[in-house]
Amino acid sequence: MAQLLYGGAGVVLFALGLWAFLVYTPLLRKLIALNIMGSGVFHLLIAIAERGELPPDPVPHALVLTGIVVAVSATALALAMGRRLEEDEGGR
């Protein structure tokens, strides 16, 4: 039940992020939306690692760590590109 609650929260986060990504145009909102979608997927992975009394499944934990670093990298590149565009437009 706890798994469903936490994993379900992940699905809700994913859906909220997807909605925000599709509806809003500013870069920052889109990036935050993407990161929320990512957090949703990571939520689900963390939720299914739970095994009651036993120690949790380490594989999804490691996947989430990898996923976070990938998400950080992509966010950084997108922000840098966005700032480059902003500077170019400001310079005109």
Binding site: Q3, G7, G8, V11, W19, V23, I48, R51, P55
Partner: peptide
Amino acid sequence: VIGAFVLLLAIWLLWVVQTAIDIGAGPRLA
């Protein structure tokens, strides 16, 4: 329209996650 679509998607996915948890109650890779 997008909101309605995403809402339906979320409800569907919640059900799928429940189903998947039921199928995969086994040990996985732990």
